[in-house]
Amino acid sequence: MPTVSVIMAVYNAQDTIVRAVRSVLDQTHTDLELLLVDDASSDGSVATVQAHLAERGGDERVRYLAHPSNRRAAAARNTGVSAATGDFVAFVDSDDEMLPTYLETLVGALDEGVDVVVGNIVYVRPDGSRRERHPAVTGDFPGPRAAELGLLDKITPFTCDKLLRRSLYDGVRYPEGIINEDFLTNPVLAAGARTVRVVDAPVYLYHVRADSVTWGSIPPVSELDTAERYLRDALLSGAGVTPAMRAAVDHATVFLTLSSAQRALLKDPATAHDRQVVRDCRRRIRLVTLVRLARVAPVTAAGGVLLKVAPPAYAWLYRRHVRASYGQDA
């Protein structure tokens, strides 16, 4: 049984998948399995990997799983988790890379009682320059507190910078059919952990691409309703819910709404659908919620107010942020 199962959702990634696969198989920590979950690719992604592995002389650590039809990333991750045999799971996207010491760093940070270890993402801009995202907090946190910090964007919302004990997925799966599934599920997984450890060490290369799901997709606003229900059912439906957790869930719903509006605001030329998404997002954000958030998350609260009263100003500021942080024209 390997220490770590690395899961890669694959969909039409022929141009980048060999780089991603190589980054896993060349890890300095070698006790792993790589699960490739083909989500009904039509471009020969898996054949490209198989040809690469043949050139390497094969690698029995690689396992192939396949969906008969495209079900999106969350479903592919769920398929991988269900098939995993490692004590821990990690994830890599098919257009990104693990740094060579990813697993060595995160496995090395494990202790008795630590169920999740979080490292740093390094953004690779289109011009090749890099920017490392350092954590807002470091150290050890009880699971429920780590969940709150994740919902407040103090612990990153990504799946790809984390090592997670596989048993945390008992009864938990990524919500299918929507994007932002990692932002939603990571706090739920954290809430079930004994301890979450955040270390300030680079582990993952995130290649910024305009055509990726994160940057280019504008989901229907109905997905925000699905996301909010998922969080409220998972984190606010039991006994003993704290005011801090309620505030954190409020923040997450506003944060996701702003993210959807941002994608639509940056479209040029904007379609009728894009303009409707912005209007729906503005209506969805309630001023009473922003008032409650002003103390715990003033930047998000201010962003919500600005989007409601002056969308062009919000779009201008966000374009400047994207250009400065990611080297991406917006």
Rank of each mutant, 00 (worst) to 15 (best):
A54Q: 14
E112R: 10
D182I: 01
L110W: 07
A84R: 03
V196M: 08
A248D: 10
G113F: 09
D280R: 02
R194L: 09
Y206N: 13
A272Q: 13
P220Q: 04
S23M: 07
G58E: 12
V24G: 01
V172F: 03
A227T: 04
S41T: 12
R22K: 12
A190P: 01
K308R: 15
S82I: 02
Q27E: 12
Q262C: 09
T30L: 03
F141V: 03
D250T: 06
R295W: 13
R284S: 06
A264E: 10
T16I: 06
A76I: 00
P68W: 00
Y102W: 09
Y11C: 02
W215M: 15
L25G: 03
S222R: 14
A75E: 01
Y11F: 14
L168I: 05
T289I: 07
A75N: 06
V114I: 14
R56F: 08
L258G: 11
Y230N: 01
R292F: 01
S94N: 14
S259Q: 11
V137K: 11
D274G: 09
P126S: 10
A76C: 08
S41G: 13
D250L: 14
P100F: 13
H134M: 06
L236H: 11
Q27W: 02
H251P: 03
V198H: 05
P68Q: 09
T300I: 08
R72E: 00
D39Q: 02
G86M: 06
V208I: 15
V18Q: 01
H52L: 07
R71P: 00
N120G: 04
T48E: 15
D15K: 14
V24P: 02
L205G: 00
G304Y: 01
D31W: 09
T30N: 09
P135W: 04
